[in-house]
Design a binder for these strands. Structure first.
Lengths: 246, 246
DNA sequence: CGTTTAATTGAAAGCAGTCAAACTATGTGG
DNA sequence: CCACATAGTTTGACTGCTTTCAATTAAACG
């Protein structure tokens, strides 16, 4: 299976942030059969209310999860970067409780639910790694609740930008280099529980204060420490230090 | 072990909402050694930033999880009812990313982390049930993000009350009977990202409109359907229908 | 009962939302 | 290469939901 060479390597690395995989686990994971697909921006990978059929791993590009209220307001509940799994939530639950959509053009590895379930069952190390991954996602959700519920628009936006910077630049401290943030202001607003207009103004003040520089889809932070201070950011909830939890 | 007789039955039932436990799994679960403790209201079971040592199962009373922002604002990120596990998150993560506190006087079964880890590893059925439980909690977190981010104070409060009613009255439709909601208005406000004053006024309008009756800590809903409509409530995210996912 | 905690009410200020329009960038077809 | 269409960003004026501050009332507690 030549095209399988290393495509899932990113997933393995992601899982290894929080759990150890032994050589056998790693081999089994990388040997999983999958289908490589490329999707345009805004393509639905999972639809709220429908039974999920597959498990998608994001290989390149960005994706996000969203829910709609009855009135039609949209809330983005998480954003995903390459190496992350878009359906661990849905592997075992029978009806999706939210939608998953690509943010940019994205390359995705589609694995069958059955295959993932089987490997998680047969190889406890992998089952454990999936559990750990889910726990960390849950921790991020708790931080998002706190961010939206208890921080001002300014701190809220700064906090999200800090999170993205750290996650994209995983494990080393952010070095100030610009990175691609492929979200429109409307999408940022939907992730933060704000309106697009107010998000625009808030971003404007962060720019004016020299905390953020952005144009097109590139963004950078001239004063990282100040940005962290504005948002009260601490990366602990990302659980990036390797856990001894086995 | 006489006092062990059935104390963990509630936990088994809770896990079985989302996964099947076979007779052996069930037996092993109920046979887990534990320590019975009773705590006063506001007692800390886990402190943010500290390594969790044990795994607590709530047997009676209520508990909640909270985070503090750097500025000291509090956000309650989840509320727990009897039968629920207060530390599945923390069994495997080495540093708690939030605090867990009792809401009322509460009876708790303390199980050692090692015991839980061992049984989850040795009995895949139990490991799977724990995974499912975590997935459902994650789904609830996503709904909370949406609730706080995109609903008005009125809808937000109504939604939370609907959720509690359903969870407390699990699996049968809510029958309108009063139930005990042992949260102060300040705590409700902290769960919803509102100020206590505004929560009080919002609750007042719900009462005035005949959607909520409450005094002391008992609450009831004279017009359940209208309450659901006000909040756009749908119980799907609670994943209460037994999953086939095994 | 006095004390403490929680609930309630009032008035004022402000952050964020709404509505609307202008501007910019990007892309398409003629 | 330009005209036009589309999507995203920016700005202004205004409204209003929610917060803040403060004080009062009611309930819980020893």
């Amino acid at each position: 299976m030549p095209e399988n060479a290393g495509e899932l390597e990113l997933l393995a690395r992601r899982l290894e942030f929080h759990a150890r995989l032994d050589a056998e686990d790693r081999k089994a994971l990388l040997a999983l059969p999958f289908q490589l697909r490329t999707f345009d921006p805004s393509h639905y990978l999972v639809r709220d209310g429908e039974p999920p059929r597959t498990c998608a791993i994001l290989l390149s590009g960005f994706a996000f999860r969203q829910k709609l209220t009855f009135e039609g307001a949209r809330q983005i509940v998480s954003v995903h970067i390459p190496g992350e799994a878009l359906d661990f939530q849905n592997i075992f639950l029978d009806v999706a409780d939210h939608s998953v959509q690509t943010l940019t053009r994205a390359k995705v590895a589609i694995i069958s639910r059955d295959q993932i379930r089987a490997i998680a069952q047969e190889r406890p190390g992998i089952g454990h790694a999936i559990l750990m991954y889910n726990l960390v996602e849950a921790s991020i959700s708790r931080e998002w609740i706190t961010n939206i519920g208890r921080r001002s628009a300014r701190a809220r936006l700064a906090h999200l930008l800090c999170e993205f910077a750290i996650r994209i630049d995983t494990l080393r401290l952010y070095d100030g280099a610009p990175y691609e943030l492929p979200m429109s202001q409307e999408q940022l607003a939907d992730a933060l529980g704000l309106t697009p207009v107010h998000l625009n103004r808030t971003l404007g003040t962060l720019r004016k204060d020299g905390l953020v520089e952005s144009n097109h889809r590139m963004i950078s932070f001239p004063n990282w420490d100040a940005l962290c201070e504005v948002s009260g950011f601490s990366a602990r909830y990302l659980h990036l230090v390797a856990s001894t939890g086995k």
